[in-house]
Every structure is written in structure tokens, then in C-alpha cells.
Write a protein that binds this DNA or RNA. Structure first.
Lengths: 296, 296
DNA sequence: ATCATGGATCAGGTAATCTGATCCAAGGTG
DNA sequence: CACCTTGGATCAGATTACCTGATCCATGAT
């Protein structure tokens, strides 16, 4: 097995060869010329050959130096490039988040994370992934719901907050439609976050109301659109109280039956991530930050 | 310009990755496991990613480690191989030497050099090169004669000993042939080191002897063969006193005219070498040794 | 339950490395 | 031709990085 010469001496020599002088190398390495001179001499002594011809002004590569330099330059460049890529990947945080959670919770807060960790590049993909399996290769972290049946092995989970649902509509809609009693929902326009109508079905399972057909009403592509339709007075949405906090505080959405709040049977919002990425610095920083945002 | 991570840490990581454990790496690098552990951690901190997954027993490469390792292994191997080649070339001493000087002077002494510098591999080529130009690329040093007209630029010269010539023959030849006076050489069988007959011509220029034809006699390929023919009683050789010292001391060769010794007009034996190899350690060691042998 | 394995960690000592001043040789300049 | 500039060599002393060796800890095997 061939023995490797002193690596720091090799680096000093490579820099000196590239700069065609010790002073340039010294500047690049942030050391004095004496240090470079010493490194080069050490390497020459190790190899038993002069690597430079010394002139009055500067140096020039010897035969041996001319053979050694390109190997070093290329090798160091490859190592540096790969290290660079790994290090930058370490600061590239890919997150996937469902639309409503993304628009209504994550995006308004994300600037605070970016301000705290300006070196971490957050790449947010706003899309569903709950019904499909979480792609732990492509994404470092994913927002999801806890009781997801299909879940790959080696997935770590961090719970964030529960999902509490209750019907909500605009004040104008309540004024123009009878919503005194839950049974009045039978005549209301139900707004669905998906064509599955699971939101209303689940809520009606907790609060059985006779005469209400969970299949009735309008379908939207996601909860955010359904909620915005509700704000516009289109009907009654099964609102996520956490995600609609702004509208509820501003009064653009109201709860006709504020006591009838159900916990989603799918469980709360959580973070998913592959186990072997779970403790990467960038992942841990994001998880800690999210936990802080949830708590604060 | 990408910055290079700490090189010693890279080496420690590479060894640990190859051995799939810190203990093996520690043995290879002749350090303790703590040192390896420290290096790996330093590198992980530098890159911002774990390179190993730590288990109860041993470690395994993480995604980032799996990407980094092959680059390092390959680069280090290439560097080590090139360094190895350069270092071994530094101990590979190619010498060319004319036959007589080789057989009669250098070879009997060369073992002393090899004993003193057992790491230096001496590659001796015994062949003429005086009439052609000395090949300073192929050979680190060449034995030659000083007054060589064709000589490449940047060739350094180190004089060794003068060449002193006088006719010599075996005692039997002298007993059976009249060699009382120089003029008796006209009837003797002259032995020539080359078909050029320069040896006898030069000597006759110093000591003009009437009646002697320098073209007469037998030709040999080199001075050694001509000398050995003289020992066998074939005739009279123009002997190099330094190269025939053994025969003269043993009495197998005698000088009929011991006062008639000429200095060769071609000058003495010398060492040639390209100027930029002249001070290579292996070259300097050989030159110093030769000078010592000449003096001692 | 106990031991063996393999890594993490820490304080302390040592050796490698760097600094900064000085010296030197050669080429450029007026 | 004296002078200055450039670029490397060298040295003593300071500093830093590195290694050691002991201890600790988690886990899997006996």
C-alpha cells in the first residue's frame, strides 16, 4: 500500500506550483512565505527530489514538480467540488406542505426562519402528499397529518398541533341564511376541501345531525380555496380553526355553532422525515423552529 | 474558488470509511481511535452533515459519506501512486559507461556504492556514447572523456582522473619478441581499442618513433577486449595505466618502455550530467562517491 | 446479568506549524 | 556601477493543532 506524503505540504506545493511562486501561494493559503517554503522543502525531502528550480526571481517547476502538479490540482479540485456540493446540500432544505397549511400557516411564518438561518435555502413545494407516500428521498421534511395509513418504513414523526374543525361562513351568509340550529345545515351550501367530502362526513360522525347530506354542496381542490369561497359568501366550510384564525379574528368568517368543534379523526398536523435525515442540522433547526412557532 | 476541507480530517475519514470503523482506520494511520473520532467529527462539522451513522457496534456511511468516500479514495490513490513513482524515480540512478571503464573500474567498485546507499537502484548501461551526444534524458550520469567536441548544452562536467597511456604486453610476448627500443614496435603486433587506431596515433604524436605504422595490427571493439588480448600474448596494447593497474601489479602485463607515458589529448575521464539533474540527491551521492573512490 | 465491542469525550502534553525578522542572490534602473 | 526591488531561505520563538490515554457510555452477545 503506497504511503501518502504529508497532505498539507502537498497542498502548499500545489498552490505554489499554480501561482508559480511562493508568495502567491502564501496569500492563497493565508500563511507567510516562510511557511510555504518550509512545506515545499518538507515535501521535496519526503520525495527525495527537488520540485522547483530556484531562480533569483521566483521558482519554476522541475521535471518531478511538473509531473506531480496536475495530479494534485485535479484531485484537490475534485475533492473540493464534492465537499462543496455536500456542504451546500447540507444547507438546502426541501419541504413539502399541503396547500392550506402552506398558505395559511407556513408561508406567513417562513420569513422568520429565513431571517434566523439565512444560510439555509428553504425550497418549499406546496402540494398534496398525504394520500400518496411521503417521498423522503426528494424531501427532507413534509407537513402531513398524523393518522396516515400508508407510510413508508423509517419515517420519523413530530406532532405539531391538533386539527379542530367546525362549520364556518361569512357574516353575510349567516345573515341571509337560517343557521340557528345544526339542522339548518341541511339547507346550507356545503363547501368541501376535496371531492371526497371527508371533512363534513368526519364532523357529522362526531355531531350527528339529522337531515344533513355530507355529499351535498361544492367541491374545491383544497381547503384554502374552500375557505376563501366561504369568506366570499358562497357557503359553509368545514374550517380548520388553526388555519382560519386570521379570518375568525378579523370577523370575515364566523362560527354558527362555536360549541360544536370536532377533533379530526385523522389526527393533528405533524412533520414527517426519513429517519436518517431526521437529525441533520438543517432538519433539526427547522423542526425546532416549527415547534417553537407552534408553542409561541 | 471552492475551499478545501481539512486534509488530515479527509484522510482520517477516508480510512475510516474504507475500514468501516474507526479502529481499523486508527491502526492504519498509527493513531488512537480518539484521534480518528476527532478528525471525523471535525470534518462533519466543516461540511455540516454527518458522514457516518453511529451504531452501538461500529459505524456505517451516511448518504453524504457514501458520496464523499469514492472521490477521496480515488484521489488519494492517484496522489500516492504519483508520489510513489516520483520518489522511486528519485532512487533510480541510470548511468552509462564505456566498456573498459565499466568493466575495469566501475563494476569492481560499484558494490561499495550499493552497500553505502542500498536504497538507490543503480542501472548501469555499458556502452559507448562518447562519439554520439550524451543522452541526458535517458541517463542521469555518463562516464566520458573530457575533450569531447560534440556536447549538448546544459551539460555539467566533473573531472575524475587523467588518462595516461603506454604500450603494454604480456611477459611472454616480450620474451619472444624484440622490444628493446621503441623502434622495435615496427615489427610488433599492435592491438587497437577501435578500428580508428586513435590510441596509437595519439601516442606516436607525443613520442615520434620512426618506422611504426599506427594502422598496422588487430582491431577490437573496445579497450577491454584489446587489453585482454594483450594479456593472452596476442600483441602490444596501448594501455590505460589506470584501467590496467590490476594486470600491471599482478605482472600479467608489463610496460616495455615505462618512461614513455603520454597524457591522452582527449583529456581525462569525467562524469557528464544534465545541469538540472546535477544536484539531485541520487546524482550528488554518486558523484561524491566517485570522487572519493578516485581520491582514495 | 455480565462482559465485550466500538465509539465519544476530556484534560493535558507534545510536536508540528506558523510567524516575523533577517539574510541573500540576482535582475532592473537611473 | 551603486542602488533598490523582488522573491526565496532561514531561524528562534510563539502558537496552534494534534495525539494520547484514561474514562464513559450504549448496545449486543454469552
Amino acid at each position: 500500500m503506497p504511503k501518502l506524503p504529508p497532505l498539507n505540504a502537498l497542498r502548499a506545493f500545489e498552490a505554489a506550483a499554480r501561482h508559480e511562486g511562493f508568495i502567491g501561494a502564501a496569500e492563497e493559503l493565508h500563511v507567510t512565505r516562510g511557511a510555504v517554503s518550509r512545506h515545499v522543502k518538507l515535501l521535496e525531502h519526503h520525495l527525495g527530489v527537488p520540485l522547483f528550480r530556484r531562480h533569483a526571481q521566483g521558482v519554476s517547476l522541475s521535471e518531478a514538480g511538473r509531473r506531480l502538479m496536475p495530479v494534485l490540482t485535479e484531485s484537490f479540485a475534485r475533492i473540493a467540488a464534492e465537499a462543496e456540493r455536500i456542504a451546500s446540500d447540507a444547507l438546502d432544505l426541501h419541504i413539502i406542505c399541503p396547500p392550506a397549511t402552506s398558505i395559511r400557516w407556513l408561508l406567513p411564518r417562513l420569513d422568520r426562519f429565513r431571517a434566523r438561518h439565512p444560510d439555509i435555502q428553504v425550497r418549499l413545494t406546496t402540494d398534496f402528499h398525504c394520500d400518496t407516500m411521503f417521498n423522503g428521498v426528494e424531501y427532507d421534511l413534509g407537513f402531513s397529518i398524523e393518522n396516515q395509513p400508508t407510510r413508508a418504513p423509517n419515517i420519523a414523526v413530530q406532532g405539531l398541533f391538533g386539527v379542530r374543525m367546525s362549520p364556518a361562513c361569512s357574516p353575510a351568509y349567516r345573515a341571509s341564511h337560517p343557521l340557528e340550529r345544526p339542522e339548518d345545515l341541511a339547507q346550507a351550501d356545503l363547501l368541501h376541501e376535496t371531492p371526497r367530502h371527508g371533512d363534513w362526513t368526519d364532523w357529522l360522525a362526531t355531531f350527528p345531525v339529522t337531515g344533513v347530506d355530507p355529499a351535498q354542496g361544492h367541491d374545491f381542490a383544497n381547503l384554502d380555496l374552500a375557505t376563501r369561497a366561504a369568506v366570499m359568501g358562497t357557503g359553509v366550510v368545514m374550517a380548520d380553526l388553526m388555519l382560519c384564525r386570521d379570518e375568525l379574528e378579523a370577523g370575515t368568517l364566523v362560527l354558527p355553532f362555536p360549541e360544536m368543534v370536532s377533533d379530526s379523526p385523522l389526527g393533528g398536523i405533524c412533520l414527517l422525515g426519513m429517519a436518517d435525515k431526521w437529525d441533520l442540522p438543517k432538519v433539526r433547526l427547522f423542526r425546532d423552529w416549527v415547534a417553537e412557532e407552534v408553542a409561541g
